[in-house]
Design a protein around this nucleic acid. Structure first.
Length: 105
DNA sequence: CTTATGACTTTCA
DNA sequence: CTGAAAGCCATAA
């Protein structure tokens, strides 16, 4: 129990704060943790998860600014798409309607 | 300290 | 709409 809240934990906490059936962009999560321009750093933190189920983080609720799923090594985007669809997220043109499911301030 | 990489974003042609 | 380039942040070597 560390108590040390680093950048990674902040990102995980922000992602955990995303309500079910809704999605947030990397930029939104970055801004939530205090780094509006740290979208790439957010992806870095999520990549560090590496399938760590011990840390329950709804990483599948995080999408890019276009509302689409970014390509990543080792995992197919179809997985995330199916997970989001299972939560009630509607896909249009292979992308998510951020105006409908995008997290709002 | 410098260089390189990456689940990003925005702008220009 | 598609493609290329630069910008920004965190980590590793």
């Amino acid at each position: 129990m560390t108590g040390d809240h680093g950048f990674f934990e902040r990102v995980y906490d922000a992602v955990r704060a995303i309500p079910r059936g809704r999605v947030a962009t990397y930029g939104q999560v970055a801004a939530f943790v205090g780094v509006p321009r740290g979208a790439r750093a957010v992806g870095w933190a999520l990549r560090a998860l590496g399938g760590r189920r011990s840390v329950r983080v709804p990483w599948h609720r995080v999408v890019n600014a276009a509302g689409g799923i970014s390509d990543r090594p080792g995992l197919s985007p179809a997985v995330q798409r199916q997970r989001l669809r299972a939560e009630g997220v509607r896909f249009v043109g292979g992308q998510v309607d951020l105006r409908r499911h995008g997290v709002r301030a």
